[in-house]
Write a protein that binds this DNA or RNA. Structure first.
Length: 295
DNA sequence: AAACAGGGGTTAA
DNA sequence: TTAACCCCTGTT
């Protein structure tokens, strides 16, 4: 066996966590590959975002990554898993590269990592994403947080945490109308009821892909695609292969040369990528969108 | 200037 | 299988 895998080193100073020898990690790839909506690129190339009710700034210079405004304790408990540092992406890319399309896609989005996001935030975000464009999705989520989240002051600016289900219930349908989510507001409200009652913490623990999906589909506003996103981005179901218009186009373009049904694409992908389906989907989505493949 | 199309889908018929 | 769905934005 031949690995040139170098172990990441972690050090701490002044509320910064410094990571060196970081591999398979690129801020732009990670935050622009469509999995999250609350990270904003700054003029200096760094990103600031909020997750787990914490504001975090993150900068990168080659294989050195700095997480600002955090602690070793938070890094161990939250960010290590959030940035999926337990996963060997080099190995995944090598495996996927047996396929020539994925070889190109993984080279293009070489620094992609699948974030492990908070479930409730992910549910609401992807309900909002339905038949919507990214700038507007971000705007709606932002408004939701400003109205019903908690203030977080950082570097002279005010950020907001993502409001829990109880805050949404308190806001009511009328309050939710203010976020201008259109017909999606009632879906968000009903999801809040589910997560306030039936789907309490650890409800999905131990449930496999099929069981979890079945549960998620109970919620109005969560269909096949949104469920797959939630499964992939928050429930660690890396075999999930969400098929949106971009993935549909890129798959048809490279593998079929003609229009396909979504379920046929999913069956094909399951067969082809198996347990790595979710990773394949992210590389393909990013590749397709950035290169405008299939348009 | 006013209408129109379409956007990381889902639902109901 | 297909249209309607809220709203915003960019395009005629």
């Amino acid at each position: 066996m031949c690995y040139n895998y170098i172990v990441m080193k972690i050090s701490e100073y002044n509320n910064n966590i410094v990571l060196t020898n970081v591999s398979d990690f690129n801020l732009e790839n990670i935050f622009d590959c469509g999995q999250c909506f609350r990270w904003e690129r700054q003029n200096d190339g760094s990103y600031i975002g909020v997750a787990f009710s914490r504001a975090l700034k993150i900068t990168q210079n080659a294989d050195t990554v700095i997480l600002h405004n955090t602690t070793r304790d938070d890094f161990d408990k939250i960010w290590f898993n959030y940035f999926d540092f337990n996963t060997n992406y080099d190995k995944i890319k090598q495996t996927l590269s047996d396929d020539s399309v994925l070889k190109s896609a993984t080279e293009f989005g070489s620094g992609i990592r699948i974030l492990n996001q908070e479930l409730w935030e992910c549910v609401v975000s992807f309900i909002i994403s339905a038949s919507n464009n990214i700038p507007r999705i971000k705007k709606i989520i932002n408004t939701l947080c400003e109205l019903y989240g908690d203030k977080i002051d950082y570097m002279g600016k005010t950020y907001y945490s993502f409001p829990p289900p109880q805050k949404i219930l308190l806001a009511g349908i009328d309050g939710l109308a203010q976020i201008k989510a259109g017909y999606r507001d009632k879906y968000i409200f009903s999801a809040a009821e589910f997560f306030n009652n039936e789907f309490t913490t650890s409800y999905f623990d131990g449930l496999d892909y099929d069981r979890s999906k079945k549960e998620l589909l109970k919620i109005n506003g969560i269909g096949n695609k949104v469920a797959d996103c939630i499964l992939l981005f928050s429930l660690s179901k890396r075999n999930s292969f969400p098929v949106d218009v971009w993935v549909k186009r890129v798959m048809e373009y490279f593998y079929f040369d003609e229009e396909q049904k979504i379920e046929d694409i999913q069956r094909f992908s399951k067969e082809k990528f198996g347990e790595l389906g979710g990773y394949a989907q992210q590389y393909l989505f990013y590749y397709a969108r950035e290169q405008k493949i299939g348009l």
